[in-house]
Computed example of a mutant assay.
Amino acid sequence: MSTSNQLVVPQASAALDQLKYEVAQELGIAIPQDGYYGNITTKDAGSIGGSITRKLVQIAEQSLAGQAGH
């Protein structure tokens, strides 16, 4: 499956995958080990994506606040 989303920093892929698994575990959603996501409900996928976005925004805000404090 091809995707149009490309990471600006390709090395971030592993970190994003790790974050995806952490968020899914926090939400009690099982991520298939075979990489096939066809059996995950849209609601669960949206919950994972929304939580990842919230975490990334929080990380960015903390980073910016740290830079402003210097």
Rank of each mutant, 00 (worst) to 15 (best):
P10K: 05
Q11N: 01
A12M: 07
A12F: 01
S13H: 10
S13W: 03
A14N: 05
A14Q: 09
A15P: 01
A15R: 12
L16Q: 06
D17R: 09
Q18H: 04
L19R: 12
E22M: 09
E22L: 12
A24G: 02
Q25M: 12
Q25W: 09
Q25H: 14
Q25G: 05
E26Y: 07
L27K: 08
L27W: 05
L27F: 06
L27A: 10
G28A: 04
I29D: 04
A30T: 15
A30L: 11
A30V: 14
I31H: 05
I31Q: 01
P32I: 11
Q33R: 11
Q33G: 06
D34L: 07
G35L: 07
G35Y: 06
Y36Q: 15
Y37E: 11
Y37D: 11
G38T: 11
N39H: 14
N39T: 14
N39Y: 13
N39G: 13
I40C: 13
I40W: 05
I40Y: 03
T41G: 12
T41C: 06
T42R: 11
K43Q: 15
K43L: 13
K43S: 13
D44P: 00
A45Q: 13
A45E: 12
G46S: 12
S47F: 04
S47Y: 03
I48T: 01
I48R: 01
I48Q: 03
G49I: 13
G50H: 02
G50V: 03
S51E: 14
I52N: 03
T53A: 10
R54G: 00
R54Q: 12
K55A: 07
L56N: 00
V57D: 07
Q58T: 13
I59R: 10
